[in-house]
């Protein structure tokens, strides 16, 4: 029982850690959205020389918007998981302590605690089902945002290539490509850490 309790404690810590990483990822996503707006402005200023970049910057702007929306959802999912996990932990702690009390009592006295034990066991079971559902949702969302970041890296590479043909705008646009690449990688790092932390949760 102690093992179950410490497993849930690790899981609670893991969910809080995930929540923290995803919050930081959402902050980077906001900066990425700003970078997308800047890239569109720069492409407009570059005019005909950067015509090839217009489609890419429009796509990047759209991708950044989707990333922000998804990162908000993911952050909310992680907080929900963290709350469920804390509830599960507290319930398990209660059940552990109740079992210790029952072990000290005569069967006739111990029976009085069976209803409370059964109620909380049922509650725990509901919490575990909720947690599994929330975890599946979070895993899918993390996979989606990971996919977005891969697309974002492709945008950065294409941006850099197209930037070579933009004359005096080249350094600025290359710098923009570098920013996109860096932010995508930073978000990916937070996502990967979060995905790894999910291993703390029991299958």
């Amino acid at each position: 029982m102690q093992h179950v309790s410490s497993q849930i404690a690790s899981q609670t810590a893991a969910s809080a850690t995930i929540s923290g990483h995803l919050f930081r990822a959402s902050l980077i996503a906001k900066r990425m959205a700003l970078a997308a707006k800047n890239s569109r402005a720069m492409v407009l200023r570059a005019g005909a020389k950067a015509a090839g970049l217009k489609v890419i910057s429009d796509y990047f702007d759209e991708l950044a918007g989707k990333t922000i929306r998804l990162s908000r959802l993911i952050n909310q999912s992680a907080i929900t998981i963290s709350r469920t996990s804390v509830r599960q932990w507290r319930t398990q702690t209660f059940l552990d302590r109740l079992a210790k009390s029952q072990a000290r009592l005569e069967p006739s006295q111990s029976q009085q605690l069976n209803v409370a034990a059964a109620n909380r066991q049922l509650f725990l079971s509901h919490q575990m089902h909720s947690l599994q559902r929330q975890l599946i949702e979070l895993k899918d969302q993390l996979a989606d945002i990971h996919q977005y970041m891969q697309s974002s890296n492709v945008v950065a590479v294409t941006f850099r290539l197209e930037a070579t043909q933009t004359g005096e705008f080249r350094p600025m646009l290359e710098n923009m490509a570098e920013t996109i690449s860096q932010q995508s990688n930073d978000i990916k790092a937070h996502i990967t850490t979060s995905q790894n932390k999910l291993s703390y949760f029991q299958a």
Partner: peptide, 18 residues
């Protein structure tokens, strides 16, 4: 919280939970 288990077991020796 650390004495809850023993306390619960102790009181139920003298009184019904309800």
């Amino acid at each position: 919280i650390e004495v809850f288990s023993t306390m619960l077991a102790s009181v139920l020796k003298y009184v019904n939970i309800e």
